[in-house]
Design a protein around this nucleic acid. Structure first.
Lengths: 189, 189
DNA sequence: ACCTGAACACCGTTCAAGT
DNA sequence: ACCTGAACACCGTTCAAGT
C-alpha cells in the first residue's frame, strides 16, 4: 500500500470532507461494493471507528455520497433560454451518472431532503416557471423531469441500454423532443 | 438453534423455485439488506452452501429475484385498445414496485437480458406498433417508456416523492398524458 | 476532542467430507 | 447428486480505553 497521507501531526485532523472524498474515490475505482467503513478508513490511514465521528454510520456515509453527487451537477445559468438550461442539466446528470454509475443508484433509494437536493429541485422549478408553465403544473412536472433524467442516466450508466452509442443517443433525443414539446404545450395553455 | 424444518427425508429435495420464493419472502418482510445466503438458508432449514447448487452465488440469487419481479407483471391483452394496454402495464409496474420497493431497484443495475425481460420488452414494442408508431421509432421509444415507468415506480416506492398521495397521482397523470400525446404524434407522422 | 484496540455478531465463499 | 462442517477473509458497530 502507498504511504498514507499524514497531514495532521499526532491528532490526525480528519474532516467530513476528507472522508467523503476518500469514499467517492474508492467507489469510483473499485465500485460501490468496495465501499466499507474499513476500506475507507484504510485509505485514510486511520481506524474504522475514527469515521463514526464524521459520518455517523455507514448509512450516513452513503447519504454524504449522494450529497456530493448532487453538488457535482453543473450550475444553472438563468440568463440562457430555458431550452438550453434544460439540455445543460440533462447533460450534467448524464455525466455524473457516467462518473459514478453505482453510487448514482442511491439517488433512488431515499427522499433526499438535504439542502443540496432542495436547491436542485428549485432550479428545475424556476426553469419551468420561466418557460411559462402554470404554477399548479410546476411541481409535478419537475418531479417527472427529475425522474426521467435520473432514470435515463441510471439505465445508461449501468448498462441497461445494451445497443451501441447511437441507439442510446436516440433515446435521449427522443426524450428531449418529447419534454420540450410537452413544456411548450403546457406553457401555452 | 430451533429444530430445522425437515420436510424431505434424508435428501432435502430443494429447488431453485423454492429458494427464490424464500428469498422474495425474506426481502418483502425484512428488506433487501436482510437477504443473505445465510438468512435464506435458515428460512429453508438448510445450510448456506446448499443454495450454491441452485443459484450459483449471491449475485445469481439477486438475478433470480429480478427474474421473478418481471414475471409478476400483468399479462398483456392485445385485444384491448393500446391506450388501455399501456395504462394496465403502468399500473402493473407500480404495484410490483410497491410490493418489493428495494428489490425493484435491482432492475436498474444490470442489462436484464433474461428470457422474461425479452418478453416484457417485446410486449411494449408490439403495443407501440399497433398504435401506429413507425418502425424506427419503436425501439428507442420503448426504452424511454420502460425507463419512465420504472423510474416513477422506483421513486414512489422508495419514498423519493414526499408529498401526499394526490401529489403522486398528479405526477402519474402528467406522465400518462405526456406519453399518450407523444405516441399519437409519432403515429400520425 | 479525537482516535485506537479488542470484541461481538454477522457476512460470502472454498474445500473436503459425508450419504 | 445433494447436502454438511469447518475454515477463511471479510463486514458494521459497541464499548472501554488512551492521549
Amino acid at each position: 500500500m502507498k504511504t498514507p497521507a499524514r497531514r495532521g501531526r499526532g491528532t490526525r485532523g480528519l474532516s467530513r470532507d476528507e472522508v467523503l472524498d476518500a469514499t467517492l474515490d474508492l467507489a469510483e475505482e473499485r465500485g460501490l461494493d468496495a465501499v466499507s467503513m474499513r476500506g475507507v478508513a484504510d485509505r485514510l490511514g486511520v481506524t474504522p471507528m475514527a469515521l463514526y465521528r464524521y459520518v455517523g454510520d455507514k448509512q450516513g456515509l452513503l447519504d454524504g455520497l449522494v450529497e456530493r453527487l448532487i453538488t457535482e451537477l453543473p450550475d444553472d445559468d438563468p440568463g440562457l433560454p430555458w431550452q438550453d438550461r434544460l439540455r445543460a442539466l440533462g447533460a450534467g446528470i448524464r455525466e455524473v451518472a457516467r462518473r459514478h454509475p453505482q453510487v448514482f443508484l442511491l439517488l433512488f433509494m431515499r427522499p433526499t431532503v438535504t439542502e443540496e437536493a432542495r436547491r436542485a429541485r428549485d432550479t428545475v422549478q424556476a426553469l419551468l416557471r420561466s418557460a411559462g408553465v402554470p404554477e399548479d403544473v410546476v411541481p409535478p412536472l419537475q418531479r417527472l423531469l427529475d425522474t426521467i433524467g435520473m432514470g435515463l442516466a441510471a439505465s445508461e450508466a449501468n448498462g441497461r441500454f445494451s445497443g451501441d452509442a447511437a441507439d442510446v443517443d436516440r433515446v435521449y433525443d427522443l426524450a428531449e423532443d418529447l419534454l420540450l414539446t410537452a413544456i411548450e404545450r403546457y406553457a401555452r395553455e
